[in-house]
């Protein structure tokens, strides 16, 4: 199966490992993720006022690019891109007047016909079936205990979520299928502080402290998530957390696609661990999920 794929800006930098591991693991499942040509930044957060159409232009422009390929689906990895693209898509589907205004404004593009569906990669995996994924496993993640973390935009608001907004199960189901153990973390849906990482890093550290400490204290070896912004706030900001809470113990974060790539036994260089703040490699070696032979260069 070939499917147009929307990376989003941060998967080209901080989320590099997310993208590489996703493309490689998708290939194992016979899914070819084809980067959408000429995609534009989705704008990350949706416009939430009724009179602001400007900020819906970018998402709709991307959907037009999908339409131009004569495709009807667009898959994303980042939860934020997913939510933003889906919200704009829903808006124009339900409001022909606004769609018309936007089509007229973007007169150089073809008119958007609202025939594109926005999917999160996790939804695609669920469609394929976790049993199918199980069949491809070469190295089950035995002995690894994970704390799934959804954050906000994967599940909320519920019109744009991929799972139940209060009791989602999709990450648990995937991680279990890959052979790992999961813990229940009541903070799995709690906001990581999102864009406040720019203007209120202390607040982000407070929120991260709770999420990560609960995971650590419940026996999790790592947190598993699907968003490069959550990843920055929960990985890189551990430096600030440590500064604010001297008792804090570091814990690695992993993208769900990195777990898949590990279980499928793909090359380590497709995993992008070298740019994590808290290095997950020692943990993975201890659990014998990574072999010792490959030297890793770590730059901080």
């Amino acid at each position: 199966m070939k499917i147009p794929y929307f990376p989003g800006c941060s998967l080209k930098t901080i989320g590099e490992g997310f993208e590489k591991s996703a493309i490689a693991s998708a290939a194992v499942l016979d899914i070819e993720l084809n980067e959408l040509p000429r995609w534009v930044c989705c704008g990350t957060v949706s416009s939430l006022t009724t009179d602001d159409l400007m900020h819906h232009l970018a998402p709709v422009r991307n959907l037009i690019r999908v339409q131009d390929l004569e495709e009807t689906q667009l898959v994303t990895l980042c939860s934020v891109c997913y939510s933003t693209l889906k919200r704009s898509n829903t808006l124009v589907k339900n409001d022909p007047e606004k769609l018309k205004t936007m089509n007229q404004f973007m007169y150089r593009e073809s008119d958007y016909q609202c025939n594109v569906k926005v999917l999160h990669f996790l939804e695609l995996l669920r469609e394929i079936g976790f049993d199918k994924i199980k069949e491809k496993i070469k190295k089950p993640l035995r002995g690894l205990t994970l704390s799934p973390y959804y954050g906000c935009l994967l599940v909320r608001p519920k019109e744009f979520g991929i799972d139940d907004p209060e009791t989602p199960t999709i990450l648990q189901a995937l991680t279990k299928a890959l052979g790992a153990d999961v813990i229940d973390n009541p903070y799995q849906l709690k906001c990581c502080g999102s864009y406040h990482t720019v203007d209120k890093p202390n607040l982000v550290a407070d929120l991260g402290y709770k999420i990560l400490t609960y995971a650590r204290n419940s026996g999790a070896d790592a947190l598993v998530l699907s968003c490069p912004l959550c990843a920055f706030n929960l990985d890189n900001r551990q430096r600030e957390i440590k500064r604010q809470y001297p008792d804090f113990v570091e814990i690695p974060i992993l993208y769900f696609t990195q777990l898949m790539a590990l279980a499928f036994d793909l090359d380590e260089e497709r995993l992008g661990f070298d740019i994590h703040y808290v290095d997950p490699v020692p943990l993975l070696k201890e659990k014998q999920l990574l072999i010792d032979s490959l030297p890793l260069i770590k730059e901080k």
């Binding site: 930044c41 704008g43 400007m54 232009l57 970018a58 422009r61 973007m106 150089r108």
Partner: peptide, 10 residues
């Protein structure tokens, strides 16, 4: 801050 409005291209 780019909103991908394409005004620059035009």
């Amino acid at each position: 801050r780019c909103v991908a409005c394409n005004t620059c291209t035009k």
